[in-house]
Write a protein that binds this DNA or RNA. Structure first.
Length: 109
DNA sequence: GCAATGACTGGTA
DNA sequence: TTACCAGCCATTG
């Protein structure tokens, strides 16, 4: 527990959200994880729940390293996410609009 | 406590 | 390859 984020009854994120953010922080540069993969590493919840956590509290973590299972991004973050990955050298598919999950997917540690 | 929401996923056509 | 449908689950009002 790094202490940067903490669950609290004072309107803070739930325990699930804190765990999701902790996993995302562990993703190394140049690697990515799908929403479902994050949920699996957390051990509970699902891709929808992870997506919701990212939309609300994702600003404090490398959110661009979490994307759809097919390597595409949500329209809201597409432009910024692609810029980050190009800067990190993440393997992209021809066209540069999707990440090559085959090569970029993080194994979890 | 119930119903709606959303940065999703897998299967089928 | 793309498009549509049903299931999924934590969070919010």
């Amino acid at each position: 527990m790094s202490g940067l984020l903490a669950a609290g009854p004072d309107g803070g994120p739930g325990d699930f959200a804190v765990d999701v953010l902790a996993v995302v922080e562990q993703i190394p540069a140049g690697r990515v994880l799908s929403y479902g993969d994050v949920a699996e590493l957390v051990g509970r919840g699902g891709p929808r729940a992870v997506g919701r956590v990212m939309s609300v509290y994702g600003s404090g973590v490398p959110w661009w390293r979490v994307l759809r299972v097919d390597g595409s991004f949500a329209p809201e973050v597409f432009a910024r996410a692609v810029r980050h990955h190009r800067d990190e050298g993440t393997p992209m598919r021809p066209g540069g609009e999707r990440v090559d999950m085959r090569l970029s997917r993080w194994d979890g540690g």
